[in-house]
Design a protein around this nucleic acid. Sequence first.
DNA 1: CGTTTGACTACGC
DNA 2: CGCGTAGCCAAAC
Length: 144
Amino acid sequence: MTSMWNPPDKDFFDTVWKIVRQIPEGKVSTYGQIASMIPPYEGTDPDAHQRLSPRWVGTAMRKVEDDDVPWQRVINSQGKISLPDQSGDKQRRLLEGEGVTFGKSAKVDLTEFGWEGPDDEWLDEHNLLPPNLFLKKPKQKPLF
DNA sequence: CGTTTGACTACGC
DNA sequence: CGCGTAGCCAAAC
């Protein structure tokens, strides 16, 4: 039930779009990183604090209609584009037009182009969490 | 109202 | 590195 969300937003699509609008030109973020910024919410089991699955960030990108949401700046955790070839090419061209470069295996170097997230003040204003930059094991160095 | 569906990810080879 | 797989979970149907 959407009313049980911690943030005041009515549904998580708005929250996802709001975050994606903060990604600056020339930078990229990942589905998992965006998802990690949204606080846990109460699921059907009150004890289980659920987090938004990165899949839903992808779903939110698919539903983007407003031109002010830079959907092309969200790629997957491998640094690659998660779209069928034709649309993927469009996304790649858009990013290249912003200065993002693709290396071997059509991968973006996240250490160079990865967005580190909004500043603390913005996060606080919107009741969101700092992005989890530790993509794999908790005690690992951040990937970017 | 139950089933299917992903613009995902971590992990094991 | 690449590839397959299990888990993911609200929305769409």
